[in-house]
Design a protein around this nucleic acid. Structure first.
Length: 807
DNA sequence: TCAACGGGTATTTTT
DNA sequence: TACCCGTTGA
């Protein structure tokens, strides 16, 4: 090659093997902190500059939008550095700033813009903008390229409506949330209503299948897709249309997928369709000038609740490997050297994760010195815990002159845990940012305006229409809306058709006709600007013409003021979008908004402590990590306590948390914790704490033997759990016993001896026999084999079990 | 038509 | 605690 820089410089042997990979399938098993992002970006740069791959032939899938943006950024810098060497013969950083930015702009225009980088959802939403009109549905449903994207809330409100209106069911008995979940699951497995109907047994599943059918129909009538559709429709389209499939298969010669362990069935299907053009991967031979490159770590698979399945990663070699052997030495590279964490932290993580059974054999090797011990702090309750976290942070701050607040992350299992910690941070005047709790685009005012925008582009979108028809108030009430929706469904037209029909307004509108006419005019006027104005300008117009801003001004409270600022922020977001996407239009912006997550906006330049869930922390790293709420039932979540597979997932989540830390790791747990409302619950320290070697931990150590923290007045308090009249109580415990009630009323006496061979009765699983006893004293788990089920590992103090001789 | 109130209920994690 | 929903009263 004609210059000194290659993208293999400074990489270890395994990393360069990955980066230098050209054709065929390759699985990169990349442990935490092993430099996988580096491997990914360098490989793309390498493909383009050494193997002369066209940027437009590359499809790179990231897990978040933020990761996508970062990848583009890094890539831009890498390639600009190389260009600097070629054109000026000197390092990029020594060039004048103006020249630097000119180089970057050129790289952006010629290369970065051409590569498809994004999340599965963003990329395939983009593909659908091209091809959705070619999709032929079994049931005759149709969508146009102007489809709306419904977020989880939109989808849920649609389902709620279907359950109550169309199916005339009681939403208490048939919870929309559960139905939504069932439908989502079906979609993620590629199952359409007809198949679900066939396999449905019992009233409940038949009704779910029915709801699914109606829901799909409603989506189509609204010309809308939910998140799952963004993946499922492309799968079906690529399966059914050879022409479409050929096109995209030819177009994308090199696929890269990050966080492959969190891929689900539809995503896997999409990869296969694009890579092998529909042929079975094991017999696919045409690898010349073509590759699929996936990077992942089974130990960090934490999204099975979203239908992700890390066995897809485990099966990669078999799937794609069989036939490429011979041509390629191996299709697995393992990155096992950890450059991130001190060896104490790493050893703790390794030891923890070794308790999982289902793994790929892999051990992270330390490259750094031992560092500090892990600090463990036990606190009285969640308030004391929050204070302890802040105290710890202040101690570290006092001992380090150059500590930035942004070096610190506080991680927790559930979003609800953030509040108490925030209060402490406020008290001590430490700046912080909470990532992920409330998405910017989920704020009411923002969603309202987005609904206006969606409606402009897609008037069939009645969810959006009904959202803003009377916002701000135009005197259009429930009865009018009901009349209109009824008329629309009877005539088989959209609500918009009714709203724009002068006859309909006159006959149905009554007192609200004025407001309706007004609304119609607003929308139509805004529509007339669609072709001539950019997203930001249209948003400004919408804010003004809709009367939304005017209303907020007239309210004149702090809250209204806050909302106005958020809407200004929305305009800014649109401006930023326009900057980042030269040809970006309103549709593009709306798609970005629908698929954005809160984590995407985290501005790392702000010097603030970061608060977030363990899930959001994936892929990030911090010098200092505080992990709070290490208690049984919270982390691991109580829902995982009686299921070994989900307990393993919780453990992976813990592994992710520990491996975020570079220098210092501080763990916290509380003796008791107020759970929603005010009721205190005694807490048992997390099983994960006992899986970290105690010599790596300092602080008050409850390790061997564990701690059960119980107040003497426990029983007294428990009787008060059952509030209200006796009849209420009995009814409650029949319907849905709350966890607290069940836990304490049916649990055996503390300190009860369990031995192998004992027979127990579990309130859900029935009769079972104890096969193992782990630990002793207060820290005890037992494995029970229930009839017809795989063995379950339970905490006898939490699980609703009784020894059989007590019955 | 709409705001305000109260009771009941629920919490895992998110593209 | 916080949100959602149905009821009530203006």
């Amino acid at each position: 090659m004609d210059n000194q820089i290659t993208f293999l410089d400074g990489l270890n042997k395994e990393q360069s093997k990955a980066v230098d990979h050209y054709e065929g399938p390759l699985l990169v098993v990349a442990g935490a902190g092993s430099g996988k992002t580096r491997a990914l970006t360098h490989r793309i740069a390498h493909l383009i500059s050494e193997y002369k791959v066209e940027p437009s032939e590359i499809l790179a899938v990231t897990f978040t939008n933020k990761a996508a943006r970062e990848m583009k950024d890094r890539l831009e810098i890498l390639l600009a550095q190389k260009l600097a060497k070629i054109e000026f013969g000197q390092p990029f950083s020594t060039l004048k700033i103006s020249i630097q930015s000119e180089l970057r702009t050129r790289i952006y225009r010629e290369v970065i813009k051409e590569i498809w980088i994004g999340t599965f959802h963003a990329l395939f939403a983009r593909l659908l903008r091209f091809d959705i009109e070619k999709y032929v549905d079994k049931e005759g449903l149709k969508w146009t390229r102007h489809f709306s994207i419904y977020d989880e809330k939109d989808a849920l409100s649609l389902i709620k409506e279907i359950v109550t209106e169309d199916l005339q069911l009681d939403p208490k008995r048939f919870e929309p949330k559960k139905i939504r979940w069932a439908i989502s699951n079906a979609k993620n497995k590629g199952i359409l209503p007809d198949i679900l109907e066939e396999s449905a047994e019992g009233l409940r599943s038949r009704l779910t299948a029915k709801a699914y059918r109606v829901y799909r129909k409603a989506l189509a009538a609204n010309n809308a897709l939910d998140f799952d559709d963004l993946l499922l429709l492309p799968v079906q389209l690529l399966q059914q249309s050879k022409e479409t499939r050929d096109y995209w298969h030819k177009r994308f010669k090199h696929l890269l997928v990050d966080e492959y362990q969190d891929t689900n069935w539809t995503q896997y299907e999409l990869i296969k369709l694009l890579v092998t053009n529909g042929e079975p991967p094991s017999s696919f031979k045409a690898w010349e000038g073509r590759s699929v490159f996936v990077v992942g770590d089974a130990d960090q698979s934490i999204y099975s609740f979203r239908a992700a399945d890390f066995r897809i990663l485990m099966g990669f070699e078999q799937d794609f490997g069989a036939n490429s052997k011979g041509n390629y030495d191996s299709n697995v590279v393992k990155l096992e050297e950890n450059y991130r964490s001190t060896s104490n932290i790493l050893e703790a993580a390794n030891s923890l994760i070794s308790n999982n059974k289902e793994r790929i054999d892999k051990v992270l090797k330390a490259t750094r010195s031992s560092g500090d011990l892990i600090k463990l702090t036990r606190c009285d309750d969640e308030i004391a815990e929050a204070e302890a976290v802040v105290h710890r942070i202040r101690l570290i701050d006092a001992a380090n002159n150059n500590l930035n607040w942004s070096d610190v992350a506080i991680l927790y299992r559930t979003n609800a845990q953030s509040r108490v910690i925030e209060e402490s941070l406020v008290r001590w005047n430490i700046p912080y940012i909470v990532v992920g709790s409330l998405r910017f685009y989920d704020r009411r005012e923002v969603k309202d305006i987005l609904a206006y925008l969606k409606l402009l582009i897609n008037p069939s979108d009645s969810v959006s229409l009904l959202r803003v028809l009377n916002v701000p108030k135009r005197g259009i009430g429930k009865t009018t809306i009901q009349k209109f929706t009824d008329a629309a469904s009877q005539l088989g037209v959209t609500v918009w058709d009714i709203v724009t029909d002068p006859e309909a307004i006159r006959s149905l509108g009554g007192r609200s006709s004025k407001g309706l006419l007004e609304f119609r005019e607003i929308i139509q006027e805004l529509q007339s600007h669609l072709n001539s104005s950019g997203p930001a300008e249209i948003i400004r117009l919408a804010l003004e013409k809709s009367g939304y801003i005017k209303e907020l001004i007239s309210i004149a409270t702090d809250e209204a003021e806050e909302r106005r600022r958020n809407l200004e922020e929305l305009v800014n977001a649109a401006l930023q979008y326009q900057e980042e996407n030269e040809a970006g239009d309103l549709e593009g912006f709306l798609a970005t908004a629908a698929l954005a997550s809160d984590a995407d906006n985290k501005d790392s330049s702000l010097n603030r402590v970061t608060l977030m869930t363990l899930h959001s922390s994936k892929g990030l790293e911090f010098p200092i990590v505080c992990l709070v709420g290490m208690e049984q039932g919270l982390f691991p979540s109580y829902r995982s306590l009686d299921d070994p597979a989900s307990l393993e997932e919780e453990r992976r989540l813990c592994y992710v948390g520990l491996t975020r830390a570079k220098e210092k790791l501080c763990l916290f747990h509380a003796n008791e914790r107020r759970l929603w409302g005010g009721m205190r619950e005694p807490a048992v320290s997390s099983i994960f704490l006992s899986e970290i070697p105690s010599e790596l931990i300092e602080g008050d150590i409850p390790l061997s033997g564990g701690t059960v923290l119980r107040r003497d007045n426990r029983l007294e308090r428990l009787t008060r759990v059952d509030r209200g009249s006796p009849s209420d109580v009995s009814k409650k415990s029949h319907d849905a016993p709350s966890n607290a009630v069940r836990r304490y009323s049916s649990g055996p006496a503390p300190g009860k001896k369990w031995s192998i061979g004992d027979v127990v009765i579990h309130s859900r699983f029935g009769r079972g026999e104890i096969t193992h006893v782990f630990g002793s004293g207060e820290k005890i788990s037992i494995a029970i084999k229930f009839i017809g089920m795989s063995p379950k590992i339970l905490d006898p103090r939490l699980a609703p079990i009784k020894p059989i001789d007590e019955l």
